[in-house]
Structures are given as C-alpha cells and as structure tokens.
C-alpha cells in the first residue's frame, strides 16, 4: 500500500505574527518499492515534508495516509497509529552525530529495544540490519566512535533499519563523505530497495545522485510540489531548475552545450554511459558528413 500525502498544508507558529507557511496544497503518492528523490533548495519545504511523512509533526491541513489510514486521525486507535508510523524510518542529516552507545551492536539495538523487543530479538534484528548496510559483523563489539565517517553513517542507518521500516527516508545521506563513501552508501541504499523491497525516499542536493538512483523525482519549491517525473523528464526543465537554485546533472549540461553548438544529440540523458554513446554517435555522423563534403 502506498504512502499518500493529501492536500497537505503546514504552517509554523500559526496564529502568531511569525506564522510562516512551509507547505501548501501538496499531493503526493509514493508507492511501495519505489526509489523517490526529493530535491529543492534550502527553505523549499522538503524537510517539513519528510518530517510530516514520518509522523514527527502533524499537518495543519490535509492528511498523511499509510495503507489508506490517516496516521494523525485521533479516532484511529493509538496502537494502530503507532504501528503505521513505525513503517516509516527516518535517517537525519549527519546521523552519526546521534550515535551514543559503547558498542556498535548496542547502538543499533536501541531502537528495537524501545519497541519492546527483548535483548536476544533486538540483537538478531541489529545483526540483520548490519548485514543490510554492509557492515561486517566483526565491528559489532567495537565502539562506534572508532569507525570511519562512512562506517559510522552505516551504523546510524542500521539503527533505523533494525526497526524494520517499509519506507526509509534519508536526508542528505552522503553529505561530507568522500567520493567512494558516497558511492558505497548510495549503492547500498539501492540494494535495499532492489533486493529487500524497502521504499526509499532520498532527499538530496546532488542532482547527479538523484538522476542516477531515483525512479522518480519530486521537485519542491516555495512549499509546493513544483515538478514530478522520471529523472529524464525532470532534467529536461533545465532552465527552470537553474532558476530555482537547483541545477541539472553534469552530463545533461554537456549535451545541452553540444546541442547549442549544432550537434544532433538528445539532451534528456542523465547517465554517463548513455551520454558517451550519444556523443560518439553524433561524432561519427559529423565526421562522416565532413568526409563527404
């Protein structure tokens, strides 16, 4: 069943002189098993949106539905609402700042234990989660603070995964990591989606990352859903995206520049390999043409 956002509005400090509308009229459906990218510049409302999705805040107007049930409706029994909210896991920016336990395993067990699992069950869930994020079990008894930046982040993600969410929201999961660390985390996240069927909602500032990994992209602007579509559809709106303070993937920029020089290339390409083929095709055609001339 999908995660639905119906006509949602959110106002910070309502009924005060400081009231500010962060979201208005947002409608969205995220299907199970999807990999969705959310982009938007600072202040576009994307953080407010994800906090509503995971039930940290309640919308001022409208509804958030999981499996068709409104997670904020007080008439729904509390334990059912709680169960629904637990289906959405949230990994915040720089999640490693929230690590606190003596060992990696204890840290990951914290969530499941809070949910009422006993020691043994929690450990089993934690170990499963370590596998899912690609953390070797030999780290289980080490202090999370002795690990590298990328590994700490995996521990933090495992802590959320151990609670078995169906939907996983990741807010800038690669910020501050080196290129390989970024690549590894994203590949791991993609594997969770493909192999475990976990729905991924990736909030990112990197157009190249969302272009490569997301099935569908949602562009937020000034509290509204501005665009929605596949990476190719979205990045065809290059000028609009740039004017929103965003951008387009670099390969798309290259193709646009070549087209401006009169090359017959498609510009709705976001992957490196596809761009390479497209440029070579056009290059051969041009070379052939020149030879005839």
């Amino acid at each position: 069943m999908p995660l639905e956002v119906k006509n949602v509005e959110y106002t910070y400090s309502p009924n005060t002189p400081n009231a500010s509308v962060a979201l208005k009229g947002v409608d969205l459906t995220i299907d199970e098993g999807e990999f969705v990218g959310i982009i938007g510049h600072t202040g576009s409302g994307k953080s407010t949106l994800v906090q509503l999705l995971c039930g940290l805040m309640e919308p001022s107007e409208g509804q958030i539905l999981i499996d068709g049930v409104d997670i904020n409706n007080k008439e729904t029994p509390k334990d059912i609402r709680k169960k629904l909210r637990l289906q959405v896991g949230m990994v915040f920016q720089y999640p490693e700042h929230q690590l606190f336990e003596e060992t990696v395993l204890k840290d990951i067990c914290f969530g499941p234990k809070n949910l009422g699992f006993n020691e043994e069950e929690a450990k089993k869930l934690a170990k499963d989660a370590m596998k899912k994020v690609g953390l070797p079990l030999k780290y289980a008894e080490e202090s999370p603070f002795d690990l590298s930046g990328g590994q700490k982040r995996r521990v933090a993600i495992a802590g959320v995964l151990a609670m078995k969410p169906k939907y996983l929201i990741l807010d800038e999961p690669t910020a501050g990591l080196d290129p390989q660390g970024r690549e590894e985390i994203l590949a791991q996240v993609q594997q969770m989606q493909k192999e475990l069927g976990i729905t991924i909602i990736l909030v990112s500032h990197s157009m190249d990352d969302v272009a490569r990994f997301a099935d569908r992209i949602i562009v937020m602007n000034k509290g509204e859903k501005y665009l929605e579509g596949t990476p190719r559809e979205i990045f065809a709106h290059d000028e609009e995206l740039i004017s929103l303070g965003l951008g387009i993937p670099q390969v798309t920029q290259i193709l646009k520049r070549l087209q401006k020089e009169g090359w017959a290339v498609r510009t709705d390409i976001v992957e490196l390999d596809a761009a390479k083929e497209e440029i070579l095709k056009a290059w051969r055609a041009r070379k052939g043409g020149n030879n005839h001339a």
């Binding site: 080196d178 290129p179 390989q180 190249d208 670099q250 490196l272 390479k276 070579l280 290059w283």
Partner: peptide, 28 residues
Amino acid sequence: HLDVPVVTELAQAIGAETGIDGDILTIE
C-alpha cells in the same frame, strides 16, 4: 577513494575514438 570530475571521466571515455585529450576539466 577519490574520483575525477564527471567531464573528465566522459572525456576519457570518448577519448580513444575522438582523439580528444584525457585531461579535460571543464564543460567548455
């Protein structure tokens, strides 16, 4: 664990056939 700019990677990928240099750093 590092990388090269996307432009450089693309230039190197098409370098063999097109004969362009592998040390290109910018779109221009």
